[in-house]
């Protein structure tokens, strides 16, 4: 196997939706490669096609042209090699936190004592072992998303796909979740594709930030984040961090201004 081969290789990807008989080009010529154990965030204005791209990589949605390769193999449908953390919590409400993790492990073929132990281990990883027997409606939003993270990690996917996993959380809980995710990622290393609206979150977490352009969606540029690891939350006030933050923000702003102008032109034309 080629050592240089990226974990995930997306090339020339396009996807069209039909809405009331009209074609909407959601993605057009998306190129993106993610190396093994790399953490890449995807940012862009609302509606530019981030979720669509993630769903295609997850194999939950099909696409029109282009290629999506995982380890050089084309993606054909969803699989346990790619764990997904959805924005909605997707914990099954009739199962406890422990049982929710076990549910995934069982689907992955785990059994008996090993199953229970691994579920417990992963709940401990996200600091929720004390809440193993709580039902989702007894957990706060942040706790639910931690269980969802534990569940996605439990069956050891090669890649983690996260679509605005902390989008519904308040600022403080969000910071806590970001720290938790960084800590887990730095310890266990895993290829991550992470979608967010939050530029600070993207810069803090990532090795690279990919900025998406709008209508049609494609990768406009990727900005490497050479901040040292392990990262603690203090770095968010460092000059280096602020400079990267500014660069990413500028790139997105250019994009949203261009999109607004295009909307205007469309409205006038």
């Amino acid at each position: 196997m080629n050592v240089e081969q990226p974990k995930l290789q997306i090339s020339g990807l396009s996807k069209e939706f039909r809405r009331r008989g009209q074609a909407v080009l959601a993605l057009d010529g998306v190129d993106l490669a993610i190396a093994e154990n790399e953490f890449v965030s995807l940012v862009g204005t609302s509606g530019c096609g981030k979720s669509t791209l993630l769903m295609i990589v997850a194999g939950l949605q099909d696409f029109d042209t282009g290629e999506v390769l995982v380890d050089g193999q084309p993606v054909e449908g969803p699989g346990r090699d790619r764990g997904v953390v959805f924005q909605s919590y997707t914990l099954l409400p009739w199962l406890t936190a422990q049982q929710n993790v076990e549910f995934a492990l069982r689907a992955a073929g785990s059994k008996g004592a090993e199953l229970r132990e691994r579920a417990r281990e992963h709940l401990a990883l996200v600091g929720l072992d004390r809440f193993a027997d709580a039902f989702p409606n007894q957990l706060s939003g942040g706790m639910k998303q931690r269980v969802a993270l534990a569940r996605a990690l439990s069956y050891r996917p090669k890649m983690l796909l996260m679509d605005e996993p902390f989008g519904a959380l308040d600022a403080l809980t969000r910071h806590h979740m970001q720290e938790l995710l960084t800590r887990i990622w730095e310890r266990h290393r895993l290829t991550v594709l992470f979608i967010t609206h939050d530029v600070e979150e993207a810069v803090y977490l990532s090795d690279r930030v990919a900025i998406m352009s709008n209508a049609p969606g494609r990768i406009k540029e990727t900005i490497p984040i050479p901040l040292a690891r392990p990262r603690r939350y203090d770095i968010t006030t460092s000059a280096e961090f602020l400079e990267l933050h500014r660069r990413v923000l500028k790139s997105i702003r250019e994009e949203s201004i261009r999109a607004a102008e295009m909307d205007e032109a469309l409205a006038e034309g």
Partner: peptide, 14 residues
Amino acid sequence: VPWDFIDLGRTLEM
């Protein structure tokens, strides 16, 4: 039933 629940099952290859 939320579609995400079904998608969850799919990503688990159920």
